[in-house]
Amino acid sequence: MILVMFLDMKNGMAFNHRRQTRDRAVIERLLAKFPGKCFWGDEKTKTLFDNFDQAVFKADPDFLNKADAGDVAVAEFAPSDQLTAVDKRIEQLVIYRWDKVYPADLVCTYSLVKAGWNLTEQQEFEGHSHEKITEEVYHR
């Protein structure tokens, strides 16, 4: 599976069970980057895709295990130990990096270094409500 995460400048993911921030331009970009792919996530993440008719999104609490090879799993609220548990099944990692620091009580501690990820592409783009978002693509 292709794993997608949204992280701030301190690797923050969420605060008080809520996403730190959102930008519809990220979803547009994801759908353009992975056309025709099946997207997976939890019920909360599904709401990000609700206004995009072309998106095929499957919500499941166990989405990290159910996503097949080639599927895109959007892990907004997944604790890092869950990511480590499926590490071997991750074919590609895409991080959308907010150019700010937001409050965080859920922080990504999944180690890109230990997992052997290598930053192969990095592109900045302007979002709908964020001046700068960076798309980081990692391969092993």
Partner: peptide, 17 residues
């Protein structure tokens, strides 16, 4: 910077979006 700004950022970007 470490205490208040993250919350200000979160509110501002939520309202903008």
């Amino acid at each position: 910077i470490d205490g208040m700004l993250p919350f200000e950022n979160m509110v501002a970007d939520y309202v903008k979006e």
